[in-house]
């Protein structure tokens, strides 16, 4: 048993279970807020469509499986690519016109795009979810002695952390990342060096979207594949991003995991507040450190 005096006692197994769930939610928050931060850094657009693109990733996996028989492993590659492609179309046809306007228009445009995508899916698939089983190799439980760990959930945590780290390395340690950082600071000067910044913007948006799509594939076997799966998530991710501050890539990742865990803990000790705990944290951060945990004051 695990007790917090005067609050609650419960079996350790339940605590571990909720912490694992928190870690999984945290993985999705981290992957999504990471993509939002990368896109915002370069494009100065808050991508409201991020949740819809995540949903799209899950739907593409499901669709690949039922129509072409492509298994999970294929979806892990093709679904992010497909979502990235959709993002290229969005950027090339509409979003690029927003860069010279007030950033609020970018938010409004992507909000509209979200409504179109989600509305269309809801029209054809209803509000209910489609089942998508985990791949056989990752099915079943793993007995750790102190708890039973579903293998797929462990996999999601591990692969998400790896994806976040890989993204961080790509941005902080490679030449392409240096272009990205420099273009975030001063796009015009970077262009005078001969770097095609408009192309970089398209690719950055596609990359952020592909990360959301990747998260969607990971989520498909855990949650049901449903048109509404991204809707509420994106608002939580906004709160994560506000609390973390968008200045730092690592900050986005760390805040995502911390808030996911905190949400898991709240589910254990005060489940009524688990829906709002992240928003409460955001409010507290705004009071104490308005620029965000990892943000620099503007």
């Amino acid at each position: 048993m695990f007790c917090i005096p005067y609050v609650k006692c419960l079996p350790l197994v339940a605590l571990y279970g909720q912490l694992l769930l928190g870690l999984i939610n945290g993985s999705f928050y981290a992957l999504l807020s990471l993509g939002l931060a990368v896109i915002f850094g370069m494009l100065r657009v808050i991508n409201f469509a991020h949740g819809a693109l995540y949903m799209l990733g899950a739907f593409v996996s499901w669709w690949l499986s039922i129509t072409l028989g492509i298994p999970y492993w294929g979806a892990l590659i093709f679904a992010p690519l497909a979502v990235g492609l959709v993002a290229v179309l969005i950027e090339k046809s509409m979003l690029h016109q927003m860069y010279r306007l007030d950033p609020l228009y970018g938010l409004l445009l992507t909000f509209g795009i979200t409504q179109v995508i989600e509305g269309t899916f809801r029209y054809y698939y209803g509000a209910s979810g489609q089942p998508y089983p985990p791949p056989p190799a990752l099915s079943g439980p793993l007995n750790l002695g102190f708890m039973i760990l579903p293998i797929y959930r462990a996999w999601v945590v591990v692969i998400s952390i790896l994806a976040c780290l890989a993204t961080w390395l790509l941005i902080e340690r490679t030449r392409i990342g240096a272009y990205l950082r420099a273009a975030t600071e001063n796009p015009v000067l970077v262009q005078t060096f001969g770097i095609n910044v408009p192309l970089m913007m398209t690719l950055t948006y596609a990359f952020g979207a592909a990360l959301a799509g990747f998260a969607g594939v990971l989520a498909a076997p855990i949650y049901q594949v449903s048109p509404l799966m991204g809707t509420n998530l994106i608002i939580i991710v906004f709160a994560v991003v506000v609390a973390g501050g968008m200045g730092s890539i690592l900050g986005a990742i760390v805040t995502g995991y911390i808030l996911g865990l905190l949400e898991g803990l709240t589910k254990v000790f005060y489940p009524e507040a688990s829906n709002i705990v992240i928003f409460v944290v955001m409010a507290i951060v705004l009071l104490l450190r308005p620029a965000g945990l990892f943000g620099r004051a503007a």
Binding site: A182, E185, F193, G194
Partner: peptide
């Protein structure tokens, strides 16, 4: 560029 090291600044322009 503040977010780049001296070496990264140097090799930034292709």
């Amino acid at each position: 560029f503040a977010s780049l090291t001296v070496a990264e600044n140097l090799v930034l322009p292709p």
